[in-house]
Design a protein around this nucleic acid. Structure first.
Length: 430
RNA sequence: GGACGGAUGGCUGAGUCUGGUCGAAGGCACCGGUUUUGAAAACCGGCGACGUGGUAACGCGUCCGGGGGUUCGAAUCCCUCUCCGUCCGCCA
């Protein structure tokens, strides 16, 4: 969420930003209410001063007669204060409601456009798209051929969109996790296994809406808990309400969790197989940084994502996300889109990672600050997140890019030690 | 899951029985100064956050784990939740 003072002082910029992001918010109403609220707050504080003074006199009163008469006036003042406070709170709630809808400001270089058509390709990965001398299968065909992916079983036990992973694909899945954790540890990230559930207030702080008709979140009945859609939620929540010493920044965490998404209304050829599922495992990078660090930290996260996908031999392109496609919290967002030969008619790019600089948008909601030693006051930290691997989509990209004509799949060299094989799905020679 | 005990500023720790003089003693740490060739020690002074008004000095408001209540007034009394100890039960 943006600072109210900032919104009031930058009305036109905020409105333009909302338009660029294709989000409708009544900014003028917020400003009008905020001006009202300031006045009301002043009144509340004045009345409080008076009634505090009156109450203090009671303690020093000489006799019970004086005491009783002071009680009457003190009570009256307190009642006036309470009613002014109630009016203030009412206005405050309405402001809060609008304020939560206002998206973060966007980076000056962020491509402007109302949807993903304006996304800008920035770079390509180390590996070029492969020319197949056979007709490549999609990951689901490969997976079902070897009994690695079982959607039918998932559907029977849990529901549509759930699946079992089996056999060597599980080994590959775990290998990717190991590889990511080791690589990220080397780069200063603290490996973190997080809860798969979080309090609704934390979801909201990160920028999710846990309940309501539009929600993508599974929530627990009769509790204020929801299944997380990403460990960004728990990693951000980990420091909620904390004040961090500036010298401890940046704090780099890499979380591993299951991610749960209802994916309401999403279906079709483009979300076939593992591409869009209700549950997957994800290794997520999360960074708390100072405002001075956040831009370069964002580049660092993007570079790590590139390095990881270069390492597993998957071709990809890097996309600078347009304003209309940023979501609420992001100031700037880069996506990696991997080449998926089995997707669509003859291969398509599919989003595999995403890294966002959320500046102080999340930290203001979650109240995460940092303090400079020997300086008065605190400031909100900047938060950044980035996908290392979303396992479901990483598996798609490996299966489809590294498949062989006989249906087997080459294991990227960096993963072979953990898989224990250089090729999986090979039919043993008879 | 049951029974007690606890939660106070960066840390430690008084205050809670007996409500007002408590935004909160003392100590540690930290910062500035005196002293010293320099350092240590000693001594003197300073030292929370947020909001709000003000160019500023500064004023005002809020905050003693979270929420609610009693009262003119709550760190202090009552209810509730969370967390941490200790003992018991159960368990991977």
């Amino acid at each position: 969420m943006l600072d109210r003072k900032y919104i009031v002082e930058n009305v036109e910029a905020v409105k333009q930003n909302c338009a660029n992001r294709n989000i409708t918010v009544d900014v003028d109403r917020l400003v009008e209410l905020e001006v009202q609220r300031r006045g009301k707050l002043q009144l509340v504080q004045d009345l409080n001063t008076q009634s505090n003074a009156e109450s203090k006199k009671i303690g020093q009163a000489k006799d019970s007669e004086e005491r009783e008469s002071l009680k009457v006036s003190a009570r009256a003042l307190r009642e006036q204060k309470d009613s002014a406070q109630a009016e203030h709170d009412l206005i405050d709630r309405e402001i809060k409601e609008i304020q939560l809808q206002v998206p973060n400001m966007a980076h000056a270089e962020c491509p402007v456009g109302v949807d993903d058509k304006s996304n800008l390709e920035l770079a390509r990965g180390k590996h070029t798209c492969r020319e197949f001398d056979f007709s490549p299968l999609d990951h689901l065909e490969i997976g079902e051929k070897h009994d690695w992916i079982d959607f039918e079983g998932g559907s029977r036990t849990t529901g549509n969109g759930f699946y079992f992973l089996k056999g060597d694909l599980v080994m590959l899945d775990l290998a990717i996790q190991q590889f990511a954790m080791v690589e990220l540890s080397k780069r200063g990230f603290t490996p973190t296994i997080t809860p798969d559930l979080a309090q609704d207030s934390v979801l909201e702080g990160i920028g999710f809406m846990p309940r309501g008709p539009e929600t993508q979140i599974y929530s627990i009945e009769n509790m204020n808990l929801s299944l997380i859609g990403t460990s960004e939620i728990t990693l951000g929540g980990l420091y909620s309400g904390k004040t961090i010493a500036e010298t401890d920044l940046p704090i780099r965490l890499c979380g591993i969790s299951h991610c749960y998404r209802t994916e309401a209304g999403a279906a079709g050829r483009a979300s076939r197989g593992l591409y869009r599922v209700h549950q997957f495992t994800k290794i997520e990078m999360f960074v708390f940084a100072s405002p001075e660090q956040s831009d370069s930290m964002h580049e660092e996260l993007r570079q790590i994502e590139c390095d990881l996908f270069d390492a597993i031999g998957v071709p990809y392109r890097v996309v600078d996300t347009a304003t209309g496609d940023l979501g609420g919290p992001a100031y700037r967002k880069y996506d990696l889109e991997a080449w998926m030969p089995g997707r669509g008619e003859s291969g398509e790019w599919g989003e595999v990672t995403s890294t966002s600089n959320c500046t102080d948008y999340q930290s203001r909601r979650l109240n995460i600050r940092y303090k400079v030693k020997d300086k008065k006051g605190t400031h909100f930290v900047h938060t950044l997140n980035g996908t290392a691997f979303a396992l479901s989509r990483a598996l798609i990209s490996i299966l489809e890019n590294h498949q062989n004509a006989d249906g087997s799949v080459n294991v990227p060299e960096c993963l072979q030690a953990w898989v224990g094989k250089s090729v999986i799905g090979q039919v043993p020679a008879i």
